[in-house]
Amino acid sequence: MMKAYPLLIEGLQVIIVLLGAPLMVGWVRMLKCWLQGRQSAGPFQPYRDISKLLIKDIVLAENASWIFRFAPYAVFGATLMAGSIIPIISVDLPLTATADIIALVALFAIARFFTALAGMDIGTAFGGMGSSREMMVASLAEPAMLMSVFTVSLVSHSTSLSHMAHTVMEGTLMLRPSLAFALMAFVLIAIAETGRIPVDNPATHLELTMIHEAMVLEYSGRHLALIEWAGMMKLFLFSSLGIALFFPWGIAVADEAMMLPVALIALVAKLALVGLLIVLIETRLAKMRIFRVTEFLGSAFLLATLGMLSYFMLE
């Protein structure tokens, strides 16, 4: 029984990631509709979208290679793997030890690598443009992300996610300048990585400015469903990663069954808040020109490096 408990939690977490991600996206869309005075389709619309896409037939471009067909599975697999590492409901997951924060960033990088390759596979201008831009955003966001999480791991003397969450949880509520910088950088990066306004617009298919949607323009049917689902999970995971690193209070610690409901409620409340924050940002800001994104991410990179520097210099 003692052995089975962590595995059970792990399984539960995977299910939460799989099922919670569309709900969170639905929540964000619903809030956005309300704020913009439109009528929303309810928080469950993403489930209907995914199941619709899963039923539909696939239309493949004539020269699509195996990369194009393999990419959705790789993207989905890598993202789900990332979802089983981040301490979302419990800090002591069995899989958190297998991969640390560096491996987590690399898992997201695998997903991106394959999406970008798939974008170039058909040989349309849109796909290549999307890949080029996505990799541009990533090549600036990924180092910033690493620097931001490294600051947390310097503070907690570990790169293991569960240790980092533990340390931040047990630490006093002291305002560390390094963590403040890291958090600011992390928010900017999370916006860029999940393709939200002001960096990318997940709702557009018509603009020349689109990034992520341009890469996956040729996808259809279950391939598209997997990619969309993985995208939703990415938003969910970045939110919960931010929660685990900077606001871990409430995540279950020991093997106590009693802690789980509390952890779940805390998770739902925090994610709802994150969703609200996203909607506020997206409603207040307009999408940036593509080359302003570099300034945006450059400042994230600088903030993160400042955080690390201030750890070495001040703490």
């Binding site: 004539e62 040989g123 279950r222």
Partner: peptide, 10 residues
């Protein structure tokens, strides 16, 4: 699940 995969021009 048996979904058909149709090849079509871009």
């Amino acid at each position: 699940r048996k979904t058909s995969i149709r090849r079509a021009p871009v």
